[in-house]
Design a protein around this nucleic acid. Structure first.
Length: 569
RNA sequence: UGACCCGUGGUGUAAUUGGCAACACGUCUGUUUUUGGUACAGAAGAGUCCAGGUUCGAGCCCUGGCGGGUCAACCA
């Protein structure tokens, strides 16, 4: 799984230090935490991981590798109403697929429910936490606003004994959901809302995916996260910017826990935003649940499983992550950078193959009927070690419909009446006649070939302006090809206050081509195998494939300067 | 009208203790080419949000603005 050799990042992408690296180096220089570096990736199992999580995974595990430290995987499962085992499994698969390994350090916040409960009791005994039985609305009102201080709860100064008793009874399930909460006693007039006696335990009579029905009270994120970091010996707790204002609270809890000089430190970075995509789990879930896409792994989704199925490689995602870096600037990355990362990797590694998406029949009139031959084709011009393969050639072929124009403009180099082009690895052919049906639609082309140009070179040094891909009809594999485009037409679909992001969905994000023909080499393809269909793009073998009908997903198109020039007109 | 964070080419990221603003993507132009791909060469594009200050010298330090983001869930 962790194929880290032969990756582009190891050889070509120089890893430059980001602000987190710099802070860690500074901590090490000061000899903090016995010079250890230990990070963690803490997903909540309430959805599938997406490319934004990939950034976080690469950051956290990357730091582990860079500083000779360790990285834990910890499921942050404090809210049983949202979390499911299905998500736990997909997350583990995705992290492994990306090429990272938590070894024996797989944890769940739910592992610590007992310790967390004891800690809560300690806070109560220290007079630093109390049970409040006001309803949510009242508590919320008492919190004040960012510009106005809050007021204290009438239960704030109950006795320790009362609070211990109440909390024990909460734990025992004596109260209804929502009837009582445990709050930390901090400062109701703090300018930081999170310090205004935050709720640390709530009653939830829900079945937990791991602890079952053992608990009916569950800790809040703020109360659990830093403590788990502490107990796991995490030194740098890296999270996204919106937790910046939580940091004083994170530190406050650690203060209550701290026994030695060891102390975890929270550092925040900007989450990833990509143009033309939505990244929030809630919105992705909505796309899945409402059937706008076919599932979490729909190749149009920015999920890791979607990108995998689309044909992205772990190397390309890691390389992307390295290129975008990590800062505190809230920006938006152009998807073209992501696309560039796959193209870069696949160009060096993908098997080349010829495939015709929109077939136009060609008959080589001077080529004998019932004859065929096998021609040598290079598997990957970027890597000679990948060798060559045989491609069958015969009298009846398909070429790409776009590669022929009856009345070609000057700059169109490809086939036209009377023109000569090269069929890649095969022969020069000249178009002699164009056959149409009664609707005027071109149905086939008649061409002649030059037997002396076998392999694609003419002995007389004659030049042609274009080289076309082709496929022998008799030998071709019929396939379905799925062309994907961006899911949204707007650069920032969830950046409009008045308009729902779904309004911007691209109706043409999926185009299915049922009648494509690929050279027989792909017969043995396995799911997720990558190919370059020459001159077209990168494609991979989809899991929907059957024996009768292989299916290929287009990962990305190759650069196409002809098409680009046409677009400008 | 609070607190905290952030402002460097179109986009993203750099710029050791202040010292000629660099790299990548994208764009454009050429060269090579049996992929109108790749590779290679080159070009355009910012004077670092603004105004002051310190300094021989400020993207970096200081002050004040302006702009953007986050925070008032019994979500994480």
């Amino acid at each position: 799984m962790t194929d880290k050799n032969n990756t582009i990042e190891s050889s070509e992408v120089q890893k430059k230090a980001n602000f987190i690296d710099l802070q860690i180096e500074e901590d090490l220089k000061q000899g903090k935490n016995n010079n250890c570096v230990h990070t963690r990736f803490p997903p909540e199992p309430n959805g599938y991981l997406h490319i934004g999580h990939a950034k976080s995974i690469c950051l956290n595990f990357g730091i582990g590798e860079k500083f000779n430290g360790k990285t834990n995987l910890r499921f942050d499962d404090t809210n049983p109403s949202k979390e499911e085992t299905e998500y736990v499994e997909s997350i583990m698969e995705d992290v492994h697929w990306l090429g990272f390994d938590w070894e024996d350090r797989l944890f769940y916040t739910s592992d610590y429910f007992g310790k967390l409960h004891k800690f809560a009791l300690k806070l109560i005994r220290d007079g630093k936490a109390y049970v409040d039985d006001q309803d949510a609305e009242t508590i919320s009102k008492q919190k004040g606003t960012p510009t106005r201080p809050g007021i204290e709860s009438p239960h704030r100064n109950c006795t320790i004994e009362e609070n211990v008793d109440l909390f024990n009874r909460m734990t025992a399930g004596e109260f209804d959901e929502g009837a009582k909460v445990l709050r930390a006693k901090i400062d109701m007039s703090s300018p930081n809302m999170h310090m205004r006696d935050p709720i640390i335990y709530r009653i939830m009579k829900a079945h937990h995916h791991r602890t079952g029905d053992k608990w009916c009270i569950y800790p809040m994120y703020d109360f659990a996260h830093g403590q788990c970091d502490y107990w796991e010996g995490i030194t740098h707790s890296i999270c996204t910017l919106e937790f910046e204002v939580h940091r004083p609270l994170y530190d406050w809890f650690v203060d209550q826990l701290q026994e030695t000089a060891y102390r975890p430190r929270q550092i925040e970075f900007a989450r990833l935003n990509l143009t033309y995509t939505v990244m929030s789990k809630r919105k992705l879930l909505e796309l899945v649940k409402d059937g706008h896409v076919k599932g979490w792994d729909d190749p149009r989704m920015p999920t890791i499983s979607g990108l995998r199925r689309r044909g992205y490689t772990p190397e390309s995602i890691r390389c992307f992550s390295e290129k975008i870096g990590a800062t505190k600037v809230n920006g938006m990355i152009d998807v073209s950078l992501l696309e560039h990362s796959v193209k870069e990797h696949l160009n060096k590694t993908a098997q080349r193959v010829m495939g015709v998406l929109n077939p136009l029949k060609v008959i080589i009139t001077n080529y004998p009927e019932n004859q065929s031959e096998e021609l040598d084709a290079i598997n990957n011009p970027e890597n000679s070690e990948m060798g060559i393969r045989k491609v069958p050639f015969s009298r009846e072929l398909y070429i790409e419909r776009d590669d022929f124009m009856e009345d070609p403009p000057r700059k169109f180099f490809r086939l036209g009446p009377g023109r000569e082009v090269r069929l890649r690895y095969a022969y020069f052919i000249t178009c002699t006649s164009v056959i149409k049906d009664n609707k005027g639609e071109i149905t086939e082309l008649h061409c002649t070939y030059d037997p002396a140009s076998k392999g694609g070179n003419s002995p007389d040094g004659r030049k042609v302006k274009a080289t076309l891909h082709w496929v022998s009809i008799e030998h071709a594999v019929k396939a379905e090809v799925r062309l994907y485009d961006r899911l949204f037409n707007d650069k920032n679909p969830d950046g409009h206050k008045e308009i729902d992001f779904k309004e911007f969905m691209n109706p043409d994000s999926l185009q299915v081509l049922p009648n494509c023909f690929i050279e027989p080499f792909v017969k043995d393809a396995k799911p997720f195998d990558h190919f370059q269909f020459e001159r077209l793009g990168y494609f991979n073998f989809d899991i929907d494939s059957t024996k009768e009908k292989p299916v290929f997903n287009r990962t990305v198109q190759l650069r196409d300067s002809w098409a680009k020039a046409q677009m400008k007109k």
